[in-house]
């Protein structure tokens, strides 16, 4: 990189909830785009091809690595959904006071996990 002073990077900042929610927003969004969309196309393509292709899809989806990917993608969606709502609130200029910002950052991150757990509980148990 350039031989000049660079602005402070990850190693020098004190960790806080807002950094966490920002990083998780990017990780979950890029994960949905790079992994979730190919899985979506595989699912739709298998559904369009017929019962045999759909059987192959569900076979892979219901292996342990398959469940890890699907649970991961559902977490990525609910996390990105929750922090996306937070972005909408910040966009109107609200929620920048430190206490409120920290509180909603924690609530956003926890909300993504709770929604993921509720989704799978409803899908598998109800």
């Amino acid at each position: 990189m350039a031989e000049r002073p660079l602005s402070p990077h990850l190693s020098i900042w004190k960790w806080g909830p807002a950094m966490l929610v920002s990083i998780l927003h990017r990780v979950s969004g890029d994960g949905l785009a790079l992994v979730g969309l190919p899985v979506l196309l595989w699912w739709l393509g298998a559904l369009a091809s017929g019962p045999a292709a759909y059987e192959t899809f569900t076979w892979y989806a219901t292996t342990i690595p398959g469940y890890v990917v699907l649970v991961g993608l559902s977490w990525a969606f609910f996390n990105h959904f929750a922090s996306g709502i937070r972005h909408f609130v910040l966009d109107i200029g609200a929620g920048y006071a430190v206490d409120a910002n920290n509180r909603w950052s924690v609530a956003t991150t926890a909300g993504g996990i709770v929604l993921t757990a509720a989704f799978w509980a409803a899908l598998l148990l109800v």
């Binding site: 969309l37 196309l41 739709l44 017929g50």
Partner: peptide, 16 residues
């Protein structure tokens, strides 16, 4: 390409 593929899959599913 991804969006076009998804829409074509949907059309095929509707036809089926």
């Amino acid at each position: 390409a991804g969006a076009a593929a998804g829409l074509l899959f949907l059309a095929q599913i509707m036809i089926n």
